[in-house]
Amino acid sequence: MSKVRFGVIVFPGSNCDRDCYYVLKDLLQVKVDYIWHQEEKPKGFDCLILPGGFSYGDYLRCGAIARFSPVMEFVQDFAEQGGLVLGICNGFQILLECGLLPGAMLRNQGLKFVCQFIYVRVDNNQIPFTGAAQPGQVLQLPVKHNEGNYYVEEETLKEMKRRGQIVLRYSTKEGVVTREANPNGALDNIAGICNERKNVFGLMPHPENSSEPILGSQDGLLIFKSMLQYMEDGEFRYGGGEEFRYEEGREDDLDA
């Protein structure tokens, strides 16, 4: 059994914590434990997951209150030391609110809660969370959220593109980034981003709800497998392709 130990953080109102736990324990058969949000110094974890749900009822703004939970200081320290932190949906929103990731979430453009399968294209497979993906691979994952309309100011977006921080973008099944493929109005069809150091990753779609065939897709497993591979190798194993390079003036599918 792998020595890697995952921690799934449980906030009041988390509801995908058990799904993450199940994928890691039963499907990937790795060590995993819950971490209650009141814990200040949990010990012995290699990767942390902030799961989806409605922490603190989404009051005020999604993730705004959870971000001040006692455990979050530990999460910040853990990330600063280079530990892997994955935020899914509400977990992503918490990472935005606490500043580990840049930007913020607005309400979905269509004013509706979206609950459907979507496709995302892996725009950077050179990070620990997508290392098992081929460059440009398309994943079928479900989304279920009301505030997934990603926003960041223009200057920061430019920097993020240049550094390869835009990891997943809503696309067609064929991997073309179009307005029609965007379920929530997110800027530049952004579905997942990482920090500059590439050890903190947030995404709106739910890989834990698409990790076995009975759920309609097992593409989500790739995210967890990538993390595990990265941790077990002790060094980065690339999924293939060249190192990420931002091409100045690259034509965006959206504008094409």
């Binding site: 005020l60 703004r61 705004a64 935005l96 930007g103 926003y151 960041v152 100011e153």
Partner: peptide
């Protein structure tokens, strides 16, 4: 710190 998110 809490009541408003200065990004948006």
């Amino acid at each position: 710190r809490l009541l408003a998110n200065p990004v948006i």
